[in-house]
Simulated assay, not measured.
Amino acid sequence: MKKKTLVSLIVFLLGMCLVGLIVYKTDATEKEQKRTTAQLNATAYGERIKNEITNGIEITDTLQQILISEN
């Protein structure tokens, strides 16, 4: 009777360890995916800001040329 209980307890503890390992790996993978998504979003946003600044500079240069040509 004692041996059966001990074997059941060991199997249960090993199962819990396995479940804990699976949960840990899943969480680590999910965090890595979130980090990658955040990096991609930051890169895309940076490119958008860069393009808007470039467009603003082009507009400013065009307006400057118009003002110079009118004088």
Rank of each mutant, 00 (worst) to 15 (best):
E32I: 04
D27I: 10
L6R: 05
I59N: 06
Q64N: 12
K25M: 06
N41F: 09
F12C: 05
N51E: 14
E58K: 12
L6I: 15
Q33A: 15
L21R: 08
K50F: 06
S8N: 10
S69F: 00
T29D: 08
E70I: 02
S8I: 04
E58D: 13
K31E: 14
C17V: 00
L9I: 00
T36F: 09
I10M: 01
A42N: 14
A38Q: 10
L18I: 08
L18N: 03
G56L: 07
K2D: 14
L14W: 03
L14N: 05
I57A: 02
A44Q: 12
K3C: 05
G15R: 08
N51Q: 15
N71E: 15
V19W: 11
T60Y: 13
T43H: 08
A44N: 10
L13R: 06
A28T: 08
A44S: 11
Q33C: 06
E70V: 00
K4C: 02
V23L: 13
G20F: 09
T37F: 02
V11L: 13
N71V: 15
T5K: 05
N41V: 11
N55A: 15
F12T: 01
K50N: 02
N51M: 07
L21N: 08
V7L: 08
I59W: 04
V11M: 07
Y24W: 14
Q65T: 10
Q39A: 15
